[in-house]
């Protein structure tokens, strides 16, 4: 089986400071990988390098494209990369307002990616938007309301709908449940789990919340100071951590 994403030797420096160093891994179709580490560990830098928001100083991010098979997205042309990021890729931001158009209705937010890939039938676009509102458990009568009027959890679900409407194969998530109430987090996690399974999505989730990765991620990558210190099956890494830092991380979590 061809990996959906092959990350090879990604380096990113901010001047003399290390963003992330020599990160490599393969992600297979349907796999969900969590990247954990404390603030400043380089996990967001890595995510942004992979998603094309930052240009790495070295390394390759090879994506198995539908048309041409594996292609290095770091060196592909910008139009190709941008096309990828609104078709086969999705990016869920921590703050919904970074990923939504706050002045556009919920339906328009979901429809944008469809229109961006050439959908020109209003009725079809609207039907799909309504279908997706239902799938992310937002009352479909809110289709013409602006996200400004939504709660934080609803905004985040709308952001997910907006991202998934074009049936992407790879979803990047940056702290998708950060800043939400615990009860809202649970609902969102459940939703994400369901969508990942139904759509056969692959996902890379950056978070510092170990409970989130335990529920969502198949495997885990632990980062510290820009380096990957441990990788493995999620429950194995959490229950039998091998590296000193991972042990510290796991033991620092309050038990409830």
């Amino acid at each position: 089986m061809t990996p959906l994403l092959q990350v090879k030797g990604i380096d990113k420096h901010y001047g003399a400071r290390i963003g992330c160093m020599d990160v490599s891994f393969d992600l297979y179709p349907g796999e969900v990988m969590g990247i954990v580490g404390e603030s400043g560990s380089g996990k967001s830098t890595l995510l942004n390098c992979m998603a094309g928001h930052l240009i790495p100083d070295a390394g390759q991010v090879i994506f198995d494209t539908r048309a041409e098979g594996p292609v290095d997205t770091v060196t592909m042309s910008e139009p190709e990369r941008r096309m990828l990021s609104r078709t086969d890729w999705a990016f869920v931001h921590q703050h919904a307002r970074d990923g939504l158009r706050m002045s556009v209705s919920a339906g328009g937010n979901i429809g944008e990616r469809l229109m961006a890939v050439g959908d020109r039938h209003y009725g079809d676009i609207r039907d799909k938007a309504i279908d997706w509102l239902g799938r992310v458990e937002i009352d479909v009568t809110r289709v013409d309301d602006r996200p400004m009027a939504f709660s934080g959890g609803m905004q985040q679900r709308l952001q997910i709908a907006r991202n998934l409407v074009t049936g992407p194969r790879l979803v990047f998530m940056d702290e998708p449940t950060g800043g939400l109430d615990v009860s809202v987090q649970a609902r969102l996690l459940d939703l994400l789990r369901g969508l990942v399974r139904e759509m056969g999505l692959s996902a890379i989730i950056v978070t510092h919340d170990l409970a989130v990765v335990r529920l969502l991620a198949d495997r885990l990558m632990v980062m510290k100071d820009g380096h990957v210190v441990e990788t493995g099956l999620t429950d194995q890494v959490l229950d039998d951590p091998q590296h000193a830092y991972t042990q510290l991380l796991v033991s620092s979590v309050l038990q409830v």
Partner: peptide, 18 residues
């Protein structure tokens, strides 16, 4: 420059929906 014009239809979509 990249001919990414989906956004302009979002405006028209908003018109029809409102």
């Amino acid at each position: 420059s990249l001919e990414e014009y989906g956004l302009i239809h979002v405006k028209l979509y908003e018109d029809i929906s409102q």
